[in-house]
Nucleic acid binder design. Structure first.
Lengths: 210, 210
DNA sequence: ACGCCATCTGTCGTTCACTGACAGATTTTC
DNA sequence: GAAAATCTGTCAGTGAACGACAGATGGCGT
């Protein structure tokens, strides 16, 4: 009754969990940023938040999982953005805009942008994070394919095309991110992704040299 | 001196190493097949070959690496097959035939086929192997992109298209393999891959439902 | 306000992947 | 055959991850 009703919709316990989770992520990124991923131990992260390392593993399945938590979040945002696209757009075009919109949103916020860059650094320089990131992406491919199938109005188990589109789109995004980190740090990722998807739209069975 | 010259081109030490390596792979697959990947310890693999576990790690960087050694070999074979394709073929078409040819070769040999199926089982059911496999594939993407660039007669660092083609082709192959394992076990992987690449050739920016 | 129950957390102990250092064995080379 | 290079085993250690148990804490009915 009365003032006990929380302003938001969740109990005290749930809020505490969210705080712990957020604190673990922040502490982890602090340490990853200064000492590097492999040099940082789970114990150090846990001590910084004053919880036991056992508790860390109740929030995250592995040390890698905390590093890619932002990437996972971005996938969910792409799903949202995809549903917001007009239904008459061809699938790759819709995916292109959805991805670019999400990336632009991150570029506009200073904090988001630097955290995003930090994650990409981890993915690029720590094999374990890279591996986990790739694994997570393929996990998400099912969901993405399902949504693409809905857009196409076809059955996602019978028709191989939605899975193919989802995988290819994910590959294009990875190429764009990698180009950004390695070759074109001055460009915006969103622009690189935009161009990569544009190439997909145009078809990629290029003729041989001549 | 005299009869010390080896029949083949390598010394005794080198042959011994090859034998140990092969024995480790075989012992590992035996154990993975019966006990599963995570239930098998490196000690068990090493004991089966009568070497120390320390030696195992001098041959393989990780327990996962021994599981995907065949996949790595297949990549090298695709490179070979790609060079054998006529130079007038468009890139995706050439990749399609190269991949399908390699897969068909594995399907024809009984032993190769079952070992291939075993590896795919490991990749599908053991997250750690899956992650390492994906990581290895992205490592190989550089080399594949380089070869695609040569075929296109363009510069692989300036032009983003070769990287895109390589990534997309790899994605298509992964989709085909996955479809084989999960939905169409009765089909041949080579046929599924063939169809996936055919879709790529035709373009994938499908219209929305209507 | 009180207590019951579900859930969360810490502690302890264990397994196992992986690595550096050193010493001994073996192959190669001269 | 001796010296140099390479391979291997042993030892010791780190750190990730998990199972089990006990204590703490928030949720909830009365």
């Amino acid at each position: 009754m009365s003032p006990n009703t929380t302003v938001e919709g969740m109990g005290l316990r749930e809020r505490k969990k969210q705080r712990t989770r957020k604190a673990l992520i922040e502490a982890a990124f602090d340490l990853f940023g200064t000492k590097g991923f492999e040099a940082t131990t789970v114990d150090e992260i846990s001590e910084a938040v004053e919880v036991s390392s056992r508790t860390f593993f109740r929030y995250f399945g592995s040390k890698e999982d905390v590093a890619i938590s932002i990437q996972l979040q971005q996938f969910l945002e792409v799903y949202q953005a995809l549903e917001a696209r007009p239904t008459h757009e061809p699938v790759v075009t819709a995916l292109r805009h959805a991805v670019v919109d999400v990336l632009r949103a991150y570029e506009e916020d200073e904090a988001d942008a630097s955290q995003f860059a930090c994650v990409m650094d981890l993915v690029q320089h720590s094999p374990a994070v890279m591996a986990r990131s790739l694994e997570m992406c393929t996990e998400q491919l099912d969901e993405l394919a399902r949504r693409v199938a809905v857009r196409m109005g076809v059955d996602p188990v019978t028709d191989p095309r939605p899975k193919l589109v989802a995988s290819v789109a994910s590959a294009a995004l990875q190429v764009a991110v990698r180009a950004w980190r390695e070759d074109e740090p001055d460009e915006k990722v969103s622009d690189l992704a935009d161009r990569a998807f544009a190439l997909l739209e145009a078809g990629i069975n290029y003729p041989a040299a001549g």
